[in-house]
């Protein structure tokens, strides 16, 4: 463990670490507590937006201070996660809707539009 970090940097890193992991934990609690699948889709987005963001900012501050140069490669993970999680969530929500419709689950919104229009491709 590096002890040669100034106190202000340690406090900043600690703040962002706990913010990020706390939000991720709240999201995970949501995945356990919320009742239906469509409600649970919202839960992991807490962890993938400011949850990931907080920990990446903490990591950037920590390595920039200890290595005494700007370390920004965490931006790549941030960009990657923001672009990819919506894709997964969209595909999952559509798959869930498709399965619910084909099994005739109640409270599923109706199917409007011709079948070949049923995709954003």
């Amino acid at each position: 463990m590096n002890a040669d970090l100034p106190v202000w940097a340690a406090l900043l890193v600690a703040f962002f670490l706990i913010l990020g992991s706390g939000l991720t934990l709240i999201g995970a609690i949501g995945a356990v507590r919320l009742k239906s699948f469509y409600q649970r889709v919202h839960a992991p987005t807490l962890g993938t937006t400011w949850g990931t963001g907080g920990i990446l900012i903490a990591s950037m501050i920590f390595f920039s201070v200890t290595k005494e140069r700007l370390v920004l490669h965490e931006v790549l993970i941030a960009a990657f996660v923001t672009v990819t999680t919506p894709v997964t969530l969209m595909l999952l929500a559509r798959a869930a809707l498709y399965r619910d419709r084909s099994e005739g689950v109640v409270d599923t919104p109706g199917f409007d539009g011709p079948p070949e229009d049923d995709a954003l491709d």
Partner: peptide, 21 residues
Amino acid sequence: ACIISSTPGTAWVEYHPGSGR
């Protein structure tokens, strides 16, 4: 789609290109 899906509380479910709904 990215904006709506990554905002907690809203999720993009489906889009019909024909009607724009």
